[in-house]
Simulated scan of single mutants.
Amino acid sequence: MSRVVCDPALCSGCLACVVACMDQHYDETKADAVSPRIYEKRTSRKSGLVSYITRSCLHCADAPCMEQCPMKVFERTENGFVVAFHKEKCIGCRKCARVCPHDIPRYDKEGKIVKCDGCATRVACGLEPACVRACNTGALRLAE
């Protein structure tokens, strides 16, 4: 099973992954909710150095969001990579958000779940996820 991982030593915080995700998945109801988050971390108070890390859904092997959802909104795709979701089944209880150790599930204006789908359409065509393709420093990559 592959997933997108970030090497913080290479991440420049440029937001190319965020823009690529929004370009790939743009929908006015979920554009801000789906895109990866960029976290800034001060590495040294004296020097003022900053490091960054990009975070989107890790598509966990033991995905607690899948286990806790009473409506069975989530499912593992055929390739085993993506924890897919069926937004129309979501009742907005937010149990998935409470149990996610990575703070990934977010909600649209209607209170329905939205999250990274691993660019399932791109991957099915043999392409990389949009965030990986757009990462100009090589910080994002697919890993087992």
Rank of each mutant, 00 (worst) to 15 (best):
2 S>R: 03
3 R>G: 05
3 R>Y: 05
3 R>C: 10
3 R>N: 09
8 P>D: 04
8 P>W: 01
9 A>Q: 07
11 C>L: 01
13 G>T: 12
13 G>D: 10
14 C>N: 05
19 V>K: 08
19 V>M: 09
19 V>R: 07
20 A>K: 07
21 C>N: 08
23 D>S: 08
25 H>Q: 11
25 H>D: 13
25 H>P: 13
25 H>A: 05
27 D>T: 14
30 K>A: 13
32 D>P: 00
33 A>E: 09
36 P>H: 06
36 P>A: 06
36 P>S: 06
38 I>Q: 01
38 I>N: 03
41 K>R: 09
41 K>T: 14
42 R>K: 10
43 T>D: 04
43 T>Q: 06
44 S>D: 15
45 R>N: 08
46 K>C: 00
46 K>D: 05
47 S>V: 09
48 G>K: 04
49 L>P: 01
50 V>A: 08
51 S>C: 10
51 S>H: 02
51 S>Y: 03
52 Y>C: 08
54 T>H: 02
54 T>V: 15
55 R>A: 11
56 S>H: 09
57 C>Y: 03
57 C>M: 12
58 L>I: 10
58 L>Q: 11
59 H>V: 08
60 C>M: 09
61 A>T: 15
64 P>G: 02
64 P>K: 03
65 C>G: 06
65 C>P: 10
66 M>K: 15
67 E>V: 13
70 P>R: 15
70 P>W: 14
71 M>L: 10
73 V>G: 07
75 E>Y: 14
77 T>S: 14
79 N>V: 04
80 G>Q: 13
81 F>S: 12
81 F>G: 01
84 A>F: 03
86 H>G: 03
86 H>D: 14
87 K>D: 08
89 K>W: 05
92 G>K: 04
93 C>P: 12
96 C>S: 08
96 C>I: 10
97 A>Y: 04
97 A>W: 04
97 A>S: 11
98 R>D: 11
103 D>M: 02
106 R>A: 13
107 Y>M: 11
108 D>L: 10
108 D>S: 12
108 D>F: 07
113 I>W: 00
114 V>R: 02
114 V>D: 03
116 C>Y: 08
116 C>M: 06
118 G>L: 07
122 R>T: 01
123 V>Q: 02
125 C>W: 01
127 L>T: 02
132 V>K: 00
132 V>S: 00
132 V>W: 00
133 R>H: 01
134 A>K: 06
137 T>A: 02
139 A>S: 05
142 L>R: 02
142 L>D: 00
143 A>Y: 01
